[in-house]
């Protein structure tokens, strides 16, 4: 029974982390930017989902669509405000600061407007109980849907291929006449939708809580570090690994030690294999 609960809870949280990892990757693909706002998208997904459905009593479908729209808009704002202005000198790494600033602003706004206490996320379907309750299976199904949809987008649409092209060689994509800037905006909107989706389906598990933003930024990045930047497959594997490790650590060492274990995994992975499992090779310096 212990093993079952570690497994179920681990896979469920891991699925949420993996989806945040996907959001990181989608932004990274067109801009080579790792954004601190990735976790904020998840936090916004939970908070706005709870606001629309729990507080304002909108129908679930309407609340869901509106939440994704909020995520998309925030993605757009991220690109406009904290990515585009600093992209010209990407080697100066100003994006680390500008996205951190925007992330903190959003987190703080949520704390002020939504409150600093975690608030419950409404039950959406009410199917299942205990280990089969929807808070556990919903993130997993959503994660599969998101990953499959992204895979279809990348492989099956011209815009998706354009993302891959820009990611592979931005200058060549530009020379082909691919509108790099428009594609980048699109990728940030898409990433916003994916991130908000993660927060929406993970809401019942994680609650609607402002501090989840930084938490997800951190735990969502670990799968990316494990799997390799830009690799969606890697993010899925990494998310599951992290979720299971956390739940196991929670059982054996107690909840306070969960971040310590996660951090240790993060540093160990980065030092042992800086490019992750499926990452790209390093570039020449001189």
């Amino acid at each position: 029974m212990i093993w079952a609960s570690i497994l179920v809870a681990g896979i469920a949280t891991g699925a949420v982390y993996a989806m945040i990892g996907l959001a990181y990757n989608v932004m990274y693909s067109t801009s080579k930017v790792m954004s601190f706002t990735a976790g904020m998208l998840g936090m916004l997904g939970s908070v706005f989902g709870a606001l629309f459905i729990g507080v304002l009593h909108w129908p679930v479908a309407a609340g869901f669509v509106a939440t994704l729209a909020v995520g998309g808009i925030f993605g757009w704002i991220t690109e406009r405000l904290s990515v585009r202005p600093v992209l010209r000198n990407i080697d100066k790494h100003l994006y680390v600061l500008s996205t951190l600033a925007l992330a903190l602003m959003v987190q703080q706004l949520a704390a002020i407007e939504w409150g600093t206490e975690p608030r419950p996320f409404p039950t959406l379907f009410g199917i299942g109980h205990d280990l089969t309750s929807e808070q556990y299976w919903l993130p997993v199904i959503a994660c599969i849907i998101a990953a499959a949809a992204l895979e279809w987008f990348y492989r099956g649409t011209l815009a998706g291929r354009a993302f891959l092209a820009i990611s592979e060689d931005a200058r060549a994509a530009l020379a082909l006449g691919i509108p790099e800037r428009r594609m980048r905006v699109l990728s940030y909107v898409l990433s916003g939708v994916v991130g908000a989706f993660a927060g929406f389906v993970g809401g019942e598990l994680l609650l609607a809580f402002f501090a989840n933003g930084m938490m997800l930024t951190f735990y969502g990045f670990i799968p990316v570090a494990i799997g390799g930047l830009g690799s969606n497959r890697g993010a899925l594997v990494g998310g599951l690994v992290l979720g299971l490790i956390q739940q196991a650590a929670n059982y054996w060492f107690g909840g306070d030690m969960v971040p310590v274990v996660a951090f240790a995994v993060f540093i160990a992975i980065l030092l042992a294999m800086p490019r992750g499992l499926f990452g790209a090779a390093a570039q020449r310096r001189v």
């Binding site: 600093v86 500008s98 925007l102």
Partner: peptide, 12 residues
């Protein structure tokens, strides 16, 4: 919030 705003303004 103001600290974060300041950071963004300074960076940009």
């Amino acid at each position: 919030f103001v600290y974060a705003c300041l950071l963004l303004v300074v960076v940009l």
